[in-house]
Simulated scan of single mutants.
Amino acid sequence: MEKTTSLSSKKHYPILDGLRGVAAIMVVAFHIFETHTTSRLDQIINHGYLAVDFFFLLSGFVISYAYDDRWSKMSVADFFKIRLARLQPMVVMGMIIGALCFYFQDSALWPMIHEVPIWKTLLVMLIGFTLIPLSPSMDIRGWQEMHPLNGPGWSLFFEYIGNILYALFVRKFSNTALAILVFLSGCLLIHLAVFGPKGDVIGGWTLNYEHLHIGFSRLLFPFFGGLLLHRIVKLTTIKNGFFWTSLLTIVVLAMPRIGGKEHLWMNGLYDSLCIIIVFPLIVFLGASGEVTGKTSTKICKFLGDISYPIYITHYPLIYIYTGWVRGSKPSSQEALPFGLLTLIGSIVLAYVCLKLYDEPVRLWLKQKILTYKLAFIPVK
């Protein structure tokens, strides 16, 4: 395989960028509706949680594409610097926003907030900067999150684990060895989803055995499956790829709960089929498609640009919305404008963070810290 380091030598996948943004917005909508549900059985946009697994698969595909042919000119330390420069600035910003929202929030749902001393909030924030998971004993919110100021940090914790495993070991695997790893990871995923006690793959955000089991089960197949997909797939040409893949992504994530509480395994089977078959198909179609029109190009770029910022900064706003809903118990009509405000506010906040903070900081890091000068740092 030809070794390349210039931007012009690497084809870009704008549809994959756009799909990441579509999935990120679906996550925000999922969390907004989650506030109004009584259980995971009646959740609207029921399978929005699968967006995390979709992100893992996209990451694996993009990392294989961006780095597999660069290791003769790049060290493991270089790779870690590049990934830290890409991901870590927004991790820090997400924790800062989470700490501010936590400190100023007034909610009957979390009366203990005002009993938490400032020093402990700051300590949790500083630890959050590193993504080192907190034990339940350090939880200051009461939801048993390993990152109680910004819950979605758990998925970035596992994202980093996937990156570490790739750089240290898996990048050296032959396609056969990688296929075996992916197969075994798929079996682990199916065992969790189909034969597990809840009939889904929801979880991963608490530092205990149950959630670590869920987190690793959710990470291993899609992340390394994405690597394998890039290595073995032969792309074709798909017309209107962004429209069809976006539609398929939305339908998959919005699908109502399947099987009910009487047949939990049916929903677990749905989760498994989505992660193992549908998501790789979507990524394949997205990578095969082309964006030609100016409007479509701008939409995909915008969605790709805000995808990571919106994912890592929206949840502090969800905490506020959740506290208001649980405390005030508004009707659907009363809650609608505030739900829309939360969604729009999440997008605006993400864009502001992107332009005023993330892009300038990443540019500075690339110029001052990175010793391996890539022509670009892949998105996610």
Rank of each mutant, 00 (worst) to 15 (best):
S39C: 06
F54Q: 02
Q88P: 06
L16R: 01
L149S: 02
L248P: 06
H147P: 01
I202R: 11
V251H: 03
S155I: 09
S331D: 09
G286H: 08
S217M: 08
L341H: 03
V379L: 15
A177D: 10
M90N: 10
W110R: 09
P136V: 06
G259D: 00
Y103S: 13
R218E: 02
L181W: 05
M125S: 03
S217E: 04
N163R: 03
K355W: 06
A177G: 08
T5L: 15
L134F: 02
H147C: 09
W110V: 11
G60L: 04
E34R: 13
T371Q: 14
K120V: 00
A85L: 01
L285H: 11
G48K: 07
P111A: 01
T292N: 15
R86F: 06
N208P: 04
T322G: 08
Y351A: 08
P280M: 07
L248T: 14
G162T: 05
V291N: 05
D139S: 11
S331Q: 06
S217W: 06
F221P: 00
W324H: 05
F284E: 04
V170C: 02
I202Q: 09
H191A: 11
W110H: 14
S9R: 12
T292W: 13
A179W: 00
S59L: 03
M74W: 07
I15D: 11
T35Y: 02
H31M: 00
L58G: 05
K373Y: 06
V352E: 01
I63T: 09
D17V: 12
L109N: 10
I344Y: 06
P111S: 10
S296I: 11
I318H: 12
W265P: 03
G339S: 01
A29R: 02
S296Q: 15
M26L: 12
A77R: 12
S75M: 10
I15C: 15
R141I: 14
Y166A: 07
F302I: 04
L149W: 07
A350I: 07
L229K: 00
L253S: 00
T292Y: 14
E359W: 12
P197H: 01
G304V: 09
G18K: 09
G345P: 07
I63L: 13
S296N: 15
D358P: 05
T4C: 10
E290T: 15
A51D: 05
Y209M: 13
S135Q: 11
I320M: 13
S59V: 02
L285E: 07
L247G: 14
A66E: 04
W154T: 01
E334C: 03
D139Y: 06
V22M: 02
F216V: 13
P89G: 08
Y308W: 11
P89E: 10
L253A: 01
L317N: 06
S272F: 07
P111V: 05
W110P: 11
